[in-house]
Nucleic acid binder design. Structure first.
Length: 917
RNA sequence: GGGGCGUUAGCUCAGUUGGUAGAGCACCGUGUUCACACCGCGGGGGUCACUGGUUCGAGUCCAGUACGCCCCACCA
């Protein structure tokens, strides 16, 4: 709506000369505010006007860098996204209005397991590197029918293409939400963690770590997900309670004795390499140094003492397998035990021959026959089968009864899972790349201390995790849709890779794909040939790339000038659930690369809980999709809800808060419509009540600004909202309505027209100032309604004031309200004028309510009581109060009993009610 | 077992450095053509989880207890 300029509007007679006045014509505005209708228009305006554009030419000191979380695009849209991204956006919008040059990118974390898993499910396919590439292959979404068949095997390039196809869709869905929500990101800074730029940065990160000696490759037992067939890092492990059972199994001891071990994993019996008990346990002391014979497989294994064995658990003696758990790994290492791996990478028992080392048996034929029953079975199937076999006395190693000495005793125990996996992790020896972190614990902790965490107690989570770290970071994943590890291995004369002399790609060549690119000094023909080379087939853990988001933004290793300007970043917004991963790895990278923090502030948002205070999750089926809520209540209302919760506070979902937000939006719309329709003519703010109001406004601005500076946006919103309702619309606006319209009743009637005109101008100027300030204070939370209202009049005024056309028309680039702007208005004669006026009006309104008459009912005669001091202040605002309360005649009586600021109504006489019609 | 957070009105939550308990919603009453029924005004409603301590004074500080949530460790 354009502002209507008109001169000489009908005013009081006797006006000296027609003055130029500005006012909007409210009849041209819609009767009700429709949030959905304006959302798209303003989003387009912001994009076209480059309102959120980062200016690379401005200095670091004026720049505010946001390390935006790149959402996992393959994850489903969740109301929690609205919650946390809005909280960051509110902070960002405040910074932008204070004049900062904001760097606010949006990336999509599309590389990695979640995308692969989604592709696998969506198309019902599996990647098979041995399948030949099919150019132009178009996959269809799987239906109930095709899902019954085994998953289709597709080549690695086809699989990767399918990933790219699907993430395009997913990223569009997120993008729509972000626009709809009004996130003020600079869309020119959009990236994908799988794109060339990110791959280059990630590979150069690896190169830098390699050059500094921070990464190494080694073959060791690692947590392995048998479904995804990949190693998993400590940070991705989650404990889940699952039902299991204790099995008591009898072993023979050389020399004729017998022992009974307890285990939850009988299927690992063929992988048994030792037996151990506590050194002081009298039951087992005699056996140390002897060998035990396993049932079924008749393998002799050493019995050794270990402090780690707990006499209280099970039977006090246990079998050591390769590998049941982390302690097994420890015993295997310290005792120099054999490596008898029976679980394969696919989670099934692999073929082994007990005639050949490292396997061993006193009765090879029997052992192989027993194992033949298990081979090819999943761990779970093998467990069921072996329990049956253990019930058979034929399997006994002691020559006695069945090896299973009693029925399995069901228990509930927690087992390690990949956080996104469905089956328990296995510990399998594989070759992996690692980053040294254990050597840097104290430095990591120190960097964590350097970061300012909001809320502060989140620092403890980082410290606790870092202190308890027990493994180096496993960087490699045996997956496909990720950043390739930029390494080849030379092949010796027999064609065996030399893992001790990896060939790391050169910085200039990055990004490389070692499965197709050729290392310097070799030819393509030498791939796989003796004396040639082989590419590392693995990709990086996705965190290896996403831990570089600050460097991805700053173009580390690519553009030093830009890097210096954008790194370290100012803020990292993120959830508390990924402190141990994203925050931790990002801090680690910044430490190892440049010995610095990656950002100065970590803004940790809480979770959305369902109304029963349970965490929302897909598996519980209690997730809420955000778009319907935004359609119902409007984006501003959704943002109001998100901005009402403090950083770090887990918050129960409450639709009522959306309603309150929507109500606020409507009120802003209506109040603005009213204020801006009053004819404004640049009159000074001179009236006592107006100056008192501006004084309150100034205190509000100072307090709200302070809150925002401390990232306490929820507090700032609360204060602003309270002021808006209780100090602006319900009070100041009501108190000045009559005077602003140039009407006036009661005692103000006798004035000269010019004086009335001036008084009216003062009220209008203060109302507009109040509105302008409040709009701007609310703009970070309510970008749509504030932009709408701002456009009616203030946008043009600001542009005109700037003169050179440099001022943006957007409220989101308008200057944040500051004391100097308000200092142009002189302070009131009495600091309490505003409070006294409100108290007097409230007292009269209460008298009306008690008498059950309309607030608008005219009062013929009123006797008001208050203390002497209060009445003295009251005299300065009396005309406004009486006009607002529609009092024709008022007598003020001093009271000795009322405290300062209190009013009492001694008598009130209402005018005759005007005839209806 | 170690650590973190929380417990304030029926609900969702504020309560700065200790100084007479707050808001919104809901509820009850009431009014309302004059920016706004997506409204106004008024009202009821709390032993601040519990027990001790410090203090003239504790929702606030200290110690402990209970309950809830989360993280870590252990999980033969």
């Amino acid at each position: 709506m354009s502002e209507s300029e008109h001169a000489g509007s009908p005013g009081p007679a006797g006006r000296p000369a027609p003055r130029a006045v500005r006012a909007i014509d409210p009849s041209q505005l819609p009767k009700h505010f429709d949030a959905t209708a304006v959302a798209e228009r303003w989003d387009r305006f912001w994009q076209e006007e480059d309102v959120y554009r980062w200016d690379p030419s401005r200095a670091r000191a004026e720049t505010f860098v946001v390390d935006t979380p790149p959402p996992t695009a393959s994850g489903s849209l969740h109301i929690g996204h609205v919650f946390s991204y809005t909280q960051a956006d509110v902070v960002v919008r405040f910074k932008r209005m204070t004049g900062m040059n904001v760097y606010y990118p949006m990336g999509w974390d599309d590389n990695g397991l979640p995308t692969e898993r989604r592709v696998q499910n969506y198309y019902h396919v599996r990647c098979d590197p041995n399948t030949p590439y099919e150019p132009g292959l178009r996959l269809e979404q799987a239906n109930a029918e095709t899902r019954k068949k085994p998953a289709r095997l597709v080549s690695r390039p086809n699989f990767i293409e399918a990933c790219f196809d699907l993430i395009k869709e997913d990223e569009r869905a997120f993008s729509v939400l972000w626009h709809r929500l009004g996130l003020s990101v600079d869309w020119q800074l959009e990236y994908q963690t799988i794109d060339d730029h990110c791959r280059r940065i990630a590979q150069r990160s690896f190169l830098d770590l390699w050059n500094k000696g921070h990464v190494y490759t080694s073959e060791a037992p690692m947590m392995w997900d048998v479904d995804f067939q990949s190693a998993i890092a400590q940070a991705e492990i989650e404990d889940k309670p699952v039902p299991g059972a204790f099995h008591q199994i009898e072993f023979a001891v050389e020399g004729g004795d017998r022992i009974v071990i307890a285990t939850t994993r009988p299927e690992l019996l063929p992988a048994c390499v030792g037996v151990t008990a506590h050194p002081d346990d009298p039951r087992y002391k005699p056996f140390f140094g002897k060998r035990a014979i396993t049932p079924l497989f008749r393998a002799p294994v050493p019995i050794f003492p270990s402090e780690l064995a707990d006499p209280e658990k099970g039977t006090g003696i246990l079998m050591v397998c390769t590998f049941g758990d982390q302690t097994d790994v420890q015993w295997w290492r310290t005792q120099g035990l054999a490596l008898r791996q029976v679980v394969g990478l696919d989670g099934r028992l692999r073929p082994v021959d007990f005639a050949a080392a490292p396997y061993e048996s006193l009765d090879v034929a029997k052992a192989n026959a027993a194992y033949a029953e298990l081979v090819g079975k999943t761990v779970k199937q093998a467990q069921a089968r072996i329990v049956e076999m253990l019930r058979d006395p034929a399997g006994s190693a002691t020559g006695g009864g069945a090896p299973l000495v009693r029925d399995p005793e069901p228990i509930q125990h927690s087992v390690k899972f990949y956080e996104k996996g469905d089956r328990p992790l296995e510990l399998l020896p594989t070759r992996q790349w690692f980053c040294r972190l254990l050597d840097h614990k104290s430095e990591l902790i120190a960097k964590g201390e350097e970061v300012e965490w909001h809320p502060a107690h989140m620092r403890a989570r980082f410290r606790d995790w870092t202190e308890n770290l027990s493994l180096d970071w496993c960087l490699s994943r045996q997956r496909y849709f990720g950043v390739p590890i930029p390494v080849w291995y030379p092949l010796d004369a027999q064609g065996r890779p030399d893992y001790d002399r990896p060939i790391v790609a050169e910085a200039e060549a990055m990004p490389v794909d070692p499965t197709t690119d050729v290392p310097k000094g070799y030819t393509a023909a030498q791939r796989g040939a003796p004396g040639g080379f082989v590419g590392d087939p693995d990709v990086f853990d996705t965190w290896f790339t996403s831990s570089l988001t600050p460097q991805i933004s700053s173009h580390w290793s690519v553009d030093p000038a830009r890097h210096a300007k954008l790194f370290p970043a100012d803020v990292r917004p993120q959830g508390h659930d990924i402190i141990r991963t994203w925050a931790f790895y990002t801090i680690a990278k910044a430490l190892l690369h440049e010995n610095t923090v990656p950002w100065h502030h970590a803004l940790i948002s809480g979770w959305i809980l369902d109304p029963d205070r349970k965490k929302m999750s897909k598996s519980k089926g209690n997730v809420m999709t955000p778009l319907p809520l935004i359609e119902t209540f409007g984006a501003d209302a959704a943002r109001y809800w998100a901005a009402s919760a403090r950083l770090g506070a887990d918050t129960a979902f409450d639709e009522n808060v959306f309603k309150v937000g929507k109500r606020l939006v409507t009120k802003v719309f209506n109040a603005a419509k009213f204020v801006l329709a009053l004819p404004a003519d640049d009159a000074p703010v001179t009236h006592e009540l107006d100056r008192a109001f501006v004084g309150e406004l100034r205190a509000l601005v100072e307090s709200v600004t302070q809150s925002f500076e401390a990232y306490q946006y929820a507090h700032a919103l609360q204060e602003t909202e309270t002021f808006f309702w209780t100090r602006f619309t319900d009070t100041y606006l009501e108190l000045t309505k009559v005077r602003a319209r140039g009407e006036g009743t009661g005692t103000s009637r006798g004035r000269g027209a010019a004086e009335a005109d001036l008084a009216s101008g003062s009220a209008i100027a203060a109302l507009r100032l109040g509105l302008s300030v409040l709009i701007r204070l609310l703009a970070p939370v309510l970008p749509f309604i504030t932009e709408e209202v701002w456009s009616w009049s203030f946008a043009a005024e600001h542009a005109a004031a700037a003169g050179d056309g440099s001022a943006s028309r957007s409220v989101h680039r308008a200057p944040w309200p500051a004391p100097p702007e308000l200092a142009r208005v002189a302070p009131p004669d009495e600091a309490s004028s505003f409070e006294i006026a409100i108290a007097a009006l409230a007292a009269i309104n209460k008298a009306k309510a008690d008498a059950a008459v309309s607030m608008g009912r005219e009062v013929d005669r009123l006797v008001l009581q208050a203390s002497e001091a209060t009445l003295a202040v009251f005299s300065g605002v009396r005309a406004d109060v009486l006009a607002a309360a529609r009092v024709d005649h008022c007598e003020a009586e001093p009271s000795g009993t009322l405290g300062d600021g209190a009013f009492a109504i001694r008598s009130i006489e209402f005018a005759e009610r005007p005839a209806a019609g």
